[in-house]
Design a protein around this nucleic acid. Structure first.
Length: 265
DNA sequence: GTTCTCGGCCG
DNA sequence: CGGCCGAGAAC
C-alpha cells in the first residue's frame, strides 16, 4: 500500500512551494517529526539555511519559521544575514551543486540589488569606496549568457545579429553569441563608453588582466565606414517604420469611414 | 545510482 | 530541546 504523504501549499512562500511533515516512526526519536519543503521544480529542502541559500534575496526568510511554515513577526532577530563565502575551502565534502553555486536564480541581464557587506566592527581593513560602489560579479559571468536568445511573442527565436569583423572575443568561451550578449549587457549596464579590453595582457591571460568593467572582447576601433553603414541602417529602419505607420493610418481611416462606430470583434 | 530515514552533534 | 545535516538503510 502506498502511503500518500501530503504536501501542503505554503502561503508564506512563493506560489508552487509545498511543505511536508514526516513523523518518525521508529528508533529513539520515534514521534519526532521532520519538515521538508519542495520548490516548484520539485527540489527538496530540509533546512532553513538550505532554503535561504536557494531563495537568496528574493524572499526575506528572517521571520520565517521553518517548522510551521509561517512568518513569525515576533522573531525579529538581529541581522544574522551575511554574505556567505562558501565552498572556498578545498574541503573533502562534495559541494552542493544545486544550491551553492554563486549563480542568480534569474535569467535577467539587467542590474539587480545584491546584499554586500562592506564593513564589520572588527574589520580594520580600509574600505575602498571606489570599489565598494560596484556590485560584485564573477570574472567570466558572461559565460552564463550562453544560449540565451531573443524571441518574439510567439516564442520564435529571432534571427541573431551579425557582428562586425573587428569585434573579437576574449576568454574561456569565444562564441559569437556570447560576445553579442556580453556587449548588449555592457550597453545596458553602464553609460560609460564600451571600449573592450584595451590591455594586450588581457588577451594572453584574461583571468588575471581582465578589466571587469568592460565586455569580453578585444579593443576595437570604429571606422568612418562603420559609422556610415550604421547611419544607413538607421535611416532605412526609419523609412520602413514611417511606411508601416502610414499604411496603418490609411488602413484605420478606411476602416472608420466604412464603419464609423468602430466596434471591437 | 537516488531517496528515505534516524542518529547525533552542537548551539 | 530542536534545528540541521551526515550517513547508513532502503530502493
Amino acid at each position: 500500500m502506498i502511503m500518500e504523504r501530503k504536501r501542503t501549499d505554503c502561503p508564506a512562500l512563493p506560489p508552487g512551494w509545498k511543505k511536508e511533515e514526516v513523523i518518525r516512526k521508529s528508533g529513539l526519536s520515534a514521534g519526532k517529526s521532520d519538515v521538508y519543503y519542495y520548490s516548484p521544480s520539485g527540489k527538496k529542502f530540509r533546512s532553513k539555511p538550505q532554503l535561504s541559500r536557494y531563495l537568496g534575496n528574493t524572499v526575506d526568510l528572517g521571520s520565517f519559521d521553518f517548522r510551521t511554515g509561517k512568518m513569525m513577526p515576533s522573531k525579529m532577530q538581529k541581522n544574522k544575514q551575511r554574505l556567505r563565502i562558501e565552498n572556498l575551502s578545498l574541503s573533502k565534502g562534495k559541494p552542493d551543486l544545486n544550491t551553492a553555486l554563486p549563480i542568480r536564480q534569474t535569467a535577467s541581464i539587467f542590474k539587480q540589488p545584491v546584499t554586500k557587506v562592506v564593513n564589520h566592527p572588527n574589520n580594520k581593513v580600509k574600505t575602498d569606496l571606489q570599489r565598494a560602489s560596484e556590485q560584485p560579479r564573477q570574472l567570466f559571468w558572461e559565460k552564463r549568457l550562453k544560449g540565451l536568445r531573443s524571441s518574439d511573442v510567439s516564442e520564435e527565436v529571432l534571427k541573431t545579429m551579425d557582428l562586425p569583423k573587428g569585434l573579437q572575443s576574449i576568454g574561456p568561451d569565444s562564441s559569437d553569441a556570447t560576445l553579442l550578449s556580453a556587449i548588449a549587457s555592457a550597453l545596458h549596464m553602464s553609460s560609460a563608453p564600451i571600449t573592450g579590453q584595451t590591455s594586450s595582457a588581457a588577451e594572453k591571460n584574461p583571468a588575471i588582466w581582465l578589466n571587469t568593467s568592460q565586455p569580453l572582447c578585444k579593443a576595437f576601433t570604429v571606422t568612418d565606414e562603420d559609422i556610415r553603414e550604421q547611419e544607413l541602417k538607421v535611416r532605412q529602419a526609419r523609412l520602413s517604420l514611417e511606411e508601416a505607420l502610414m499604411a496603418d493610418t490609411l488602413a484605420r481611416a478606411a476602416e472608420s469611414s466604412r464603419d464609423p462606430e468602430g466596434r471591437a470583434p
